[in-house]
């Protein structure tokens, strides 16, 4: 029997990520990791791409991980986990180690996933290994000091897309990686957010039990990069969901399903105005970027509703 997705029940098992890691106060990444790993009853083995999560949780001679964990390099978390998973299948098949229903998970940030690790990820899921790749997406290269990635939204200020006198932040739209992964036609793809923790946990369970490759894109605020107070992490993630900037959905064996529909779709401005990285957009000469962002959100939301049979 799977543990019920009730916090009191989940808390009965020791945390798989210990305290004493050195992620910033209010970091969204460790919330995502804790919730996801709490949802899985089976043993897990983790590969972690270079990034905040990797660096801050394993500063030698300390590790915050209570499960087998490995970091290889930046762009290869997906290929590394497939090597581990292939080793497991091989050794189990040959009777060299026992079958223990081990779940294999790779964690990478948006830089390690959307950008430098995309090829390895695409190859790994195409090969059909049984693993879950999780992109904890904070929409920029936070570990190196907030540089733009292809997950960074239009208009956002980062240190390589600064809001200057002439150019008001990032000039390009963000890539829709969840759609790209869905196009691989793998058993399970989902988009989630820790503010909707039960949804995140349910998706995690489906993903690790889907019998093949799974991908989850999980929004994880970085208060240093997004520029908000450390206690607003969960709230701002939820605002991204309620503005439909970050819709929650899943694609299970080709079936698209919206897993959360906001009671009232809020204007994206409600989310933008709470973050310092978008502050310059509220100057009169930049307001058009907010309109563009709203148009992008609307267009993508409408498309998603159609795919999910909601219209």
């Amino acid at each position: 029997m799977a543990t019920k997705l009730i916090p009191k029940e989940l808390a009965k098992r020791p945390d798989r990520l210990s305290p004493g890691h050195r992620l910033c106060a209010g970091c969204g990444a460790s919330i995502v990791v804790r919730q996801m790993l709490a949802a899985i009853d089976a043993p897990v083995v983790i590969a972690n791409a270079t990034g905040c999560l990797e660096v801050a949780t394993t500063i030698y001679p300390y590790t915050a991980w209570r499960v087998p964990w490995m970091h290889n390099a930046f762009e290869n978390a997906a290929s590394t986990i497939t090597g581990i998973e292939a080793a497991y299948r091989s050794l189990v098949r040959q009777g060299k180690i026992p079958e223990q229903n081990v779940k294999f998970i790779a964690f990478g940030g948006d830089g390690g996933t959307y950008d430098i690790g995309l090829q390895a990820l695409s190859g790994a899921v195409e090969r059909g290994h049984q693993f879950l790749y999780v992109c904890y997406n904070n929409e920029a290269y936070m570990n190196t000091g907030i540089q733009r990635s292809s997950a960074t939204p239009l208009g956002a200020h980062t240190t390589t897309s600064p809001a200057g006198e002439v150019i008001p932040g990032k000039q390009q739209k963000r890539k829709d990686l969840t759609m790209i992964m869905a196009a691989h036609d793998i058993p399970y793809v989902a988009q989630a957010a820790p503010s909707q923790w039960r949804d995140l946990m349910q998706k995690t369970r489906k993903a690790v039990d889907c019998g093949g490759a799974a991908f989850m894109n999980v929004l994880a605020s970085c208060n240093r990069g997004w520029r908000h107070a450390t206690d607003e992490t969960v709230e701002l993630t939820q605002l991204a969901v309620d503005t439909c900037y970050w819709p929650l959905y899943e694609v299970e064996n080709g079936q698209w399903r919206l897993t959360y529909k906001p009671k009232e779709k809020l204007p994206v401005e409600e989310w933008l105005k709470r973050q310092g990285r978008f502050r310059h957009l509220f100057r009169p000469e930049n307001r058009h970027l907010i309109d563009e962002l709203q148009a992008e959100v609307d267009r993508r939301w409408e498309r998603l509703l159609r795919l999910c049979g909601e219209t």
Binding site: S18, P19, R22, Y62, T63, A64
Partner: peptide, 13 residues
Amino acid sequence: IILEAGNAVEYRT
């Protein structure tokens, strides 16, 4: 390699 899983608890943040 680190053999003491979760020994980060020894580090006081």
